[in-house]
Simulated assay, not measured.
Amino acid sequence: MSSRVEWHDLPDGVREAVQGHTGPVFEAESPVVGRNSAFAASLMAADGPVFCKGGRAEGPQAVMHRNEATVNPFVPRDIAPQLLWRVEQDGWLLLGFEHVPGRHAELSPGSPDLPLVADAMIKIGAVEHSESGRMIADHWKSALAKETSTQFSEWAARAPRHMRGSTLVHSDLNPLNILVADRARVVDWAWWRTGAAWIDPAFVVVRLIAAGHEPAQAEKWATQFGGYREAPAEAITAFAASLVCLWERRFGGTEVTKAARRWAEHRMAADPPQDR
């Protein structure tokens, strides 16, 4: 999105409904990053600060916000802000979350944030949440079917078969979605799925490479997670290749897409394709 709706631009009825939960709002500060919500702001209110986000109840973003509301009760409270209330009023859907302190995680080599991020990921990986309608394997297979053939396609096609599982998967663990203070908290659960326990660590491997880690160094970091450590080598190589197929057309030229290519090439060089 190119711009957001400000607090004072929301319909009167929507603001009144929100203030029914928060008390009078005397200040609203929009974040400088992220554009997936038509409205997002830290609300300073009589009953204390709250983070509020949302959009049109029938708009394209509504699915994301409903996804977040659905999964929030299953996410451990010490690693994700609690959903405090939900407002549907005058065609708007807004969610009010616990306001938590923190800055965006720094993932570069040697960062003191890395152990905190790992602690949060271990807790996420321990959550079982089997929901057949949100299997990441099915989503991945459908998405890959729409991509054109590339040098990575043979490997990428193998990824979905390895992605099934009953672990809660955030699927978008980038630094903007990880807030660090005394611990790391993970926000923006709009794209959560159910799948294999290695998937979230594998997503972070790409982010580590984009932040300056060598592929082998990033992979070594990820072996602290049992799901990743025990995953078949083919699963990780196929996943890396699938990221290139899915991201280069949509996000070509970005640092994270370049990192995905570096990782896939690193793995494919060590494990050349065979008939399987």
Rank of each mutant, 00 (worst) to 15 (best):
K258S: 03
P81D: 09
S130N: 05
H139G: 12
P175S: 12
G23Q: 09
V256Q: 02
A264L: 00
M135S: 15
D138R: 08
Q224M: 14
P232C: 12
D271M: 07
P81N: 11
V206W: 02
Q224S: 12
W92E: 04
I209V: 15
A45S: 15
H129I: 04
F26E: 12
G133M: 05
D113V: 06
E16Y: 02
S130T: 05
W191C: 11
P201G: 04
I79F: 08
A41E: 08
P232F: 12
T194L: 07
Q151L: 10
P60K: 00
A216N: 09
A197C: 07
Y228P: 05
L107P: 04
M135H: 12
F97L: 08
W263Y: 08
D47H: 12
W221M: 04
A190M: 08
V186E: 05
P272K: 05
L246H: 04
G133T: 09
A159P: 02
R56F: 08
I178Y: 00
Q151P: 01
A240M: 01
A202Q: 07
R207N: 14
G55A: 02
G212D: 11
N174V: 15
T167G: 06
E219D: 12
N174Y: 10
A270Y: 04
D78F: 07
T22L: 14
R35L: 12
G226R: 13
W198N: 06
V87W: 00
H99R: 15
A105W: 03
A181W: 09
G165T: 03
P115W: 06
G226Q: 14
A197W: 02
T194P: 06
R35P: 01
W85D: 02
I199P: 00
I79M: 10
E106P: 02
E214N: 04
P81F: 10
K220T: 15
R161K: 13
L95T: 02
A120Q: 01
R276M: 11
N72A: 15
V180E: 03
E88Y: 00
K141E: 15
H104A: 11
L43G: 03
G54W: 00
A38L: 11
Q274L: 12
D188W: 02
G23R: 08
W140F: 10
A190K: 02
P272L: 06
H99M: 14
Q224G: 14
T22K: 06
R276C: 13
L116D: 05
A202T: 10
H162W: 14
S130F: 05
H170S: 09
R103I: 11
E131V: 14
W247F: 12
T194K: 07
K141H: 12
S171A: 15
E98L: 09
L84D: 09
S153L: 07
W7M: 05
V169T: 06
H266W: 02
G133P: 00
T70A: 11
H21F: 14
V33P: 02
A233K: 10
E58K: 10
H213M: 05
T150D: 03
E27N: 11
A45T: 05
Q274R: 14
A157F: 04
R134G: 04
P101R: 11
G252C: 06
V5R: 07
M135F: 09
